[in-house]
Design a protein around this nucleic acid. Structure first.
Lengths: 133, 133
DNA sequence: AGCGGATATTTGAAGCTTAAAATAATTCGC
DNA sequence: GCGAATTATTTTAAGCTTCAAATATCCGCT
């Protein structure tokens, strides 16, 4: 489950504010978003034994058959570089990803889904779509 | 910044779905919520050197002058017990909270803001309100 | 009194996340 | 072609978060 910072925002509601309605809406939205996100996390975990960050990373790679560099992934997922490093490490370890040095740039590496990774992702994505609906 | 699981959801948009509009709205909402949350995190960190979870915990306690038990906090914040244990530990360490054994129940402990904790929280809350607006 | 189930909290293992510092390789300008 | 700035990645330290197992205490029932 995600951090739910709503009570902090809720505090503002107590102020004799003029923006009470907006804040209330905002609060609701945040609560709703976090609850749904938590549900998705739980389903991915219980059904496929995968975390949401891993799933997201695989989703990126599923759309890039030729692979992506870590920086690309980092930008797309809007997370730090170091974060991607660890995520990729674990997914390579589990056999879902493969990495190789970039042809033209020896600093970078290209990662892509393995056959296993692709197969598992597709299965998860199918279930995921029906959940969303 | 929070995890941003949007790309995963975005994938669903590519499907020749019937729910495209709903999903798109949902996606927007999530993006928006996460961006704002990230902004608040950054401001609290840069301005007061405090994290959002700590701020949330202090917000709970500010509303409970007589203190709360860890379980109360856990339920209110909707996070695990173990999470609260660590959070409280660090806040006691930094002098913002004090803990004492519950009078009637030796299993439980009551935590409350110290004078320092209350003063700092009030300052942060004031800034927080103006940010929200 | 004493047993058994519930409740409060802690601990430990694992993973996610970030920011900042360190490495390594590329590119640009001269 | 050399040096500086940029870019790609990793490492490190710290904190957050969860789940599950372990402790300690309480409460109700006999």
């Amino acid at each position: 489950m995600n951090s739910i910072p709503l009570d902090a925002e809720a505090k503002a509601l107590e102020a004799p504010g003029e923006h009470a309605a907006e804040l209330r809406l905002w609060l609701r939205m945040l609560t709703c978003a976090n609850l749904i996100e938590g549900t998705i996390r739980a389903r991915l975990r219980d059904t496929f034994g995968v975390t949401l960050p891993r799933f997201d990373l695989m989703a990126q790679l599923d759309r890039a058959p030729d692979g992506m560099t870590l920086s690309d992934v980092s930008r797309r997922m809007m997370v730090s570089n170091g974060n991607v490093t660890g995520l990729v490490e674990r997914l390579v370890e589990s056999g879902h990803l493969e990495r190789r040095i970039h042809d033209q740039d020896r600093r970078a590496q290209v990662i892509r889904l393995t056959d296993l990774g692709r197969a598992e992702f597709r299965a998860m994505a199918a279930a995921h779509e029906s959940w969303i609906a």
